[in-house]
Design a protein around this nucleic acid. Structure first.
Lengths: 214, 214
DNA sequence: TAGATTGTTAATCGATTAACAATC
DNA sequence: TAGATTGTTAATCGATTAACAATC
């Protein structure tokens, strides 16, 4: 077992990007990469790249750079991508279907164990290799299968009560696609929220800003 | 015309959250709010809230707080939400359909003018009040309609050539749902990328992290 | 007036960048 | 050895927090 290094959240948020680039380089057969090269490709400074990689110990070699495959693997380990956290998906509308497909195609630490919806038009359909189940079977499913994460692709108004149920069933990790702020209501949960509305508003600012300044 | 204040990007990224909360309060008929109250609801410090609001001039009143509606409107103006930037959507798969619906329901500065796909199964379908058009008509559509933004819900591998085309048609703003980094290739563009993969990997880290530390 | 709460300055904290000795 | 590039320390920068006088 390795000692567990402290890595700040701002570094963690950059790891996926490093990982993607290293994965791509590895696939193209590139063996080594310098902090300078990587920084240019990613739009960072070489200094920052070295600082980041130093958080988790010396994988570089002076005068040579970093071994692409080794570094990629190490970052993958830190992120925990070599695992299969069982998760369930709530809501098999357009967004839910997109996310289910995404998880199936971009395997990275999670395994989709069940999909739930409460629309009769959708229940029973095939999706990402699973059959969409009725929401009424959620409880028994969770007690039997013990998923550790729930992906919420349901309307904002349905999230509060859904989380109540899921929390009581022991689920403490959420990938949230609604604008309901789960983490403000439960303190011992991990929540990653994809804020489409916030993203759109920020984008709107930047577009408008550019127009008025030119 | 008002003087244009400088607002740092970290503040801008918080504005949509303020906006959402203020909108909700306004809808519930609440007239005033203090920085303390708001900070508790949002999980920030009161000091930060005041600093943020100070970037764009004194909308508060000592001993009273902030007028909810006025503050909401001002933030909306800063974000440029009262506009209708014409945009087009590329890709009407599950994700594209979810985004089209989202834009239709959460009007915030953008107006969907055209939707394009290259699958015969999807072309001609109705979506968000529009008929899905074939990608072959993209060029003539853009020359006639002059959209200012493109939303990319197409596969990563298709993005590079799509952006080449869109860029040549004068489009400089992108809402990107692929993991292809547009901004590393064009310097004079505004790109907001929703990185589902990165979000999933960060989440994976946090879930794994919690498990090993307990 | 007394109480509340802002606006704003100063202090702190953390993250990024620069620099360079160590070393492959 | 000479050149390249890391690892790491110190300097800088920016963002957050604390404090409090101003004032409604």
């Amino acid at each position: 077992m390795q000692k567990k290094p402290y890595i700040s959240m701002s570094v963690i948020r950059r790891l996926p990007r490093y990982y993607r680039f290293l994965k791509d380089m590895d696939r193209r057969g590139i063996l080594r990469v310098s902090s300078k090269e990587l920084s240019e490709k990613l739009g960072l400074t070489a200094s920052q790249v070295r600082q980041d990689f130093n958080c988790f110990g010396g994988y570089g070699q002076q005068g040579y750079g970093y071994a692409v495959r080794q570094l990629r693997e190490e970052i993958g380990n830190i992120l925990g991508l070599n695992q299969a956290h069982r998760c369930i998906l709530l809501g098999a509308g357009n967004l839910g279907r997109a996310i289910a497909t995404h998880i199936q195609n971009n395997y990275a630490g999670f395994e989709l164990a069940g999909i739930f919806d409460n629309s009769d038009a959708i229940i029973g359909r095939e999706l990402a290799g699973l059959t969409v189940l009725p929401s009424s079977s959620l409880k028994s499913f969770c007690m039997a299968e013990k998923p550790v994460m729930a992906i919420l692709c349901i309307p904002r108004t349905a999230v509060e009560s859904a989380v109540d149920t899921l929390y009581s069933l022991g689920i403490r990790n959420y990938w949230n696609f609604s604008s309901y702020d789960i983490d403000l209501h439960y303190k011992d949960v991990v929540v990653e929220t994809v804020h489409l509305s916030d993203s759109m508003m920020t984008l709107c600012y930047r577009v408008s800003e550019k127009e008025t300044s030119s």
